[in-house]
């Protein structure tokens, strides 16, 4: 299990990475592992404006469909359209080719409220039965 430490996490298992004035968002390695083989990713339209905590899409495996939530408020600037044809990128490379959306944050300070890799790792350990 990888807990990449240059990104921030939230409890619903998305990661967020500051990239100049944008924030890139994906799901964590832990999340993709729990979901199993991802078969479909539903993403928002570019230009949609959403608040932190809003659902922006769905990541689906055969047996589960998981909503994904905005880690920060802002406008959707880009979506990873490649996932349409290659949803398995979410499994194979959750932090790179499996990214979901890029946000132009309306309040960049929201990013700092998210968990560090270490905090998130501890959090996921608490979720095990």
């Amino acid at each position: 299990m990888t807990f990449r430490d240059d990104v921030k996490y939230q409890e619903s298992h998305e990661w967020a990475l500051k990239d100049d004035d944008l924030v890139i968002v994906g799901v964590s390695d832990y999340a993709q592992d729990s979901l199993g083989d991802v078969v479909y990713v539903e993403l928002p339209d570019v230009g949609d404006v959403k608040k932190k905590g809003d659902s922006f899409g769905v990541v689906e495996s055969v047996k589960a469909a998981s909503d994904v939530y905005m880690p920060v408020s802002g406008e959707i600037i880009e979506i990873n359209a490649d996932l349409d044809d290659n949803p398995s990128n979410v499994n194979d490379s959750p932090f790179d080719s499996g990214w979901l959306i890029k946000i132009k944050p309306s309040d960049p300070s929201e990013l700092s409220a998210l968990m560090s890799a270490q905090e998130y790792k501890t959090y996921t350990e608490g979720l095990e039965d």
Partner: peptide, 12 residues
């Protein structure tokens, strides 16, 4: 395409 359905998506 079972994720459209009630047994997985429940209220959605």
């Amino acid at each position: 395409l079972n994720t459209r359905e009630q047994h997985i998506r429940r209220d959605k």
